[in-house]
Structures are given as C-alpha cells and as structure tokens.
C-alpha cells in the first residue's frame, strides 16, 4: 500500500521560507494563518544563532539550524483519535486530512496535536487577492485547517507545492512503503529524526541531520512514480486546464503553460 511521507534535509535547508510562502499560496491559506512555518532552531529570533561570537574570550559556539514545520502526518495521529465526529481522518495513502464539511470546530484536535500544526478560522477568512490564490477552495469560518501534503496535487501525480518549489532541493516526497523510493532510501542511509519522537506519534515526516543528502532527485513537479507515465502526464494537463472545484479560485498556472515541467 502507499504510505506517503516527507524527508526534509535540514543540512540542505537554507531557511529561505519559500516552502512556507508557496504553501500559503497553493492552499489559499488565510491571512494571519500558516500551515507550514520555517522555524529557526538557535537564538530567540528568526535567523539568529544561539551561543556567542569567538571574541572577548567567548567560546564561539554559535549554532543555528532551520526546521520547516507543518503537519507531520503522524501514523499514530492523536488528532485523528480525538476528533469526535470523524472529520479528521487518515486516508488510505497515509495522509491525515480534514473533512471541512464535517468539522464542527471543537478544536480538540488542536489540543491533541503536539506540533501545533493546526490552525482555526477564528473569523471570516481573508485572502489577498480577495478571490484567493492557488488551487484549493477556501475553508469557512469556524473550522480547523492544516497541511494536506497537497493531496489535490498528489492525486494528480504531482509532488506537493513546497517540495517542487524548494530551491535547495531540501524536501523529498514519496512512498515510505516502497523500499526503492528516494524517501525510503534516505531514511535508511542517512541519520533522520522524527520531531518529538518521545510522544509516540510516529510522524511520516523525517528530518535529515548530520550528513547532507543529494537532495530531491528530480526537477519535475511530478511524483517519482509518475515519471514517464503518459496517462498521468495527460491527467496533469487536463487538470491544469480547469479549476479543481466549482468554488475554487482560478489556478495559478495559466492553461497555456500547463504541463508543469518548467
């Protein structure tokens, strides 16, 4: 079976925030909310290290790392277990998703998620431009939302937007159940960590630390498994020609340049 996962190479990550921005755009995330955040592990502020400069007898132990953080798509997801109405559920492909028509906004899942990956629409969601961005319909006031691993793209044989747009090739998406996938290989060959491992949530997001990987191996936005598959390529083209849902905003990729191989 398919079990999607993400490898983030912290040694490759340059902290440029592109994944955070592209996520916000692709998923039509309202103003004031983020599904994906690039955290600075180090000093008290963004882009600041911990430790001291090697001057005036100080040790010079400056240290800083970037940790892009979104929903970890936990295998033992507390958010799924607490949702009283089955609005949050795990798909067959391992993606943890929310049915926005079912969610009643009790926010138990926000209490349950140890990663603070979930955000709630406290008021009428606001977008710039007003019609919204990206390929996903906006979520109403009063429901919880979060990263979906861009399931709308994955279903069409495309990698998540954050993966495609990472300029450092630090994000690799794929099937954890397939031993030949890049994610599986990197997890077995490199030193990877799962965030808050001790909580037992078993995230499907792995962070490479120590030795740098060769990064994401393809420059296409297709899933590895889909490359060379004509039918999938056609599906992609068909999809890019029209909005994905009736209420959805217009796609950000104009129809004439569709294909996504840029």
């Amino acid at each position: 079976m398919t079990n999607y996962g993400l490898v983030i190479d912290q040694e490759r990550c340059i902290g440029c925030q592109t994944c955070a921005m592209t996520c916000k755009q692709e998923n039509n995330v309202p103003m004031g909310q983020f599904w994906n955040r690039v955290l600075t592990v180090g000093g008290e502020h963004v882009d600041t290290p911990s430790g001291t400069y090697p001057e005036d007898g100080e040790s010079g132990d400056l240290d800083m790392n970037y940790q892009p953080t979104a929903c970890q798509h936990c295998e033992n997801a507390p958010c799924v277990k607490v949702c009283p109405v089955n609005a949050t559920y795990t798909r067959d492909d391992g993606i943890v998703e929310i049915d926005y028509d079912k969610c009643m906004g009790c926010r138990y899942c926000m209490a349950a998620c140890p990663y603070n990956a979930r955000v709630f629409n406290w008021d009428e969601p606001e977008h710039r431009p007003e019609d919204g961005t990206g390929d996903v319909a906006e979520r109403p006031q009063g429901v919880v939302e979060k990263c979906t691993f861009c399931s709308h793209r994955v279903e069409d044989g495309l990698d998540p937007a954050c993966v495609v747009n990472c300029p450092a090739d630090a994000r690799i998406f794929g099937d954890l159940d397939d031993d030949d996938s890049t994610v599986s290989k990197y997890i077995s060959e490199y030193n990877t960590e799962q965030l808050l491992n001790e909580k037992g949530t078993d995230p499907s997001t792995y962070y490479v630390q120590g030795k740098m990987t060769p990064g994401r191996p393809w420059t296409s936005d297709k899933l590895e498994t889909e490359l060379g598959d004509d039918e999938a390529a056609q599906a992609t083209r068909r999809r890019n020609g029209a909005p994905t849902s009736e209420h959805g905003p217009t796609p950000h990729v104009p129809a004439e340049t569709a294909g996504g191989d840029d």
Partner: peptide
C-alpha cells in the same frame, strides 16, 4: 512543545 522562533501563527485578525 516546539517553541523555536517565530513560533505559531496565532490566527487573529490580520
């Protein structure tokens, strides 16, 4: 649990 900067978007009025 994870309190690295900048933290979590509070989602208040923009």
């Amino acid at each position: 649990n994870i309190n690295a900067a900048p933290g979590i978007a509070t989602g208040g009025e923009y």
